[in-house]
């Protein structure tokens, strides 16, 4: 069955049809959320809420775009709202949190030290990403972390390619500046 037919059935209240759509898109929607909020439970909650919003808004879907584009727009808007509401909060339990290694451990193995250094850099990068304004954080996550295409980002954020370009540039510039400051280096040449 074509996706549009499934969507039409779901619009008529067919929950089985809607669950087909959910199964088709749950990983992508969850992937969007987790790569921005970086917490499994929060991302799962967000993904659930996104599908609930989509279900409620489904009667207003007019097939003027792909269903996937429409769904991702709902997802991005919902994640953006979440980021705005939880600006100052920090997730205490992270999926990829690295436990501290003792000083003795560092000396014990150079290899371990290298990997720890890399993890420290990643941790710093995550922290600095979280400090970014929400619009920069979103676009960096979509492009540099998740590797979404320009076209996908343009459609999801409803921005022109030129605006995606300039926003990405500003976001990268700010991130580099923040990292340079944190590393105690010269804060960029300009």
């Amino acid at each position: 069955m074509e996706e549009n037919e499934i969507v039409k059935l779901a619009q008529q209240g067919d929950k089985e049809a809607f669950s087909v759509l959910v199964r088709n898109y749950q990983n992508k929607v969850f992937g969007l959320a987790i790569n921005i909020v970086r917490n499994h439970e929060t991302a799962d909650d967000l993904a659930q809420e996104i599908f609930i919003k989509a279900y409620q808004a489904l009667p207003r879907f007019r097939f003027q775009s792909e269903f996937s584009t429409w769904l991702y727009q709902i997802a991005i808007n919902h994640i953006r709202d979440y980021l705005r509401k939880h600006k100052k909060e920090k997730n205490d339990l992270r999926l990829d949190e690295i436990p501290e290694i003792s000083a003795e451990g560092k000396e014990a193995s150079e290899q371990l030290a290298d990997s720890q250094e890399e993890e420290q850099r990643k941790k710093l990068l995550r922290e600095k990403l979280e400090e970014m304004p929400e619009k920069y954080r979103l676009i960096l996550s979509m492009r540099d972390i998740q590797g979404l295409s320009y076209e996908e980002i343009s459609r999801m954020l409803k921005l022109s390619a030129g605006t995606v370009d300039s926003r990405l540039h500003r976001a990268r510039r700010l991130l580099r500046k923040k990292l340079a400051q944190a590393l105690g280096q010269e804060g960029g040449k300009r």
Binding site: V22, N27, G31, H40, A47, K122, L140, D144, G147, L175
Partner: peptide, 19 residues
């Protein structure tokens, strides 16, 4: 920076029984 950011990508699935 771009290389490091790409390494932050999390490939995970939602919690069980999502749908």
């Amino acid at each position: 920076l771009k290389t490091m950011a790409a390494e932050l990508k999390v490939e995970a699935e939602p919690l069980p029984y999502f749908s």
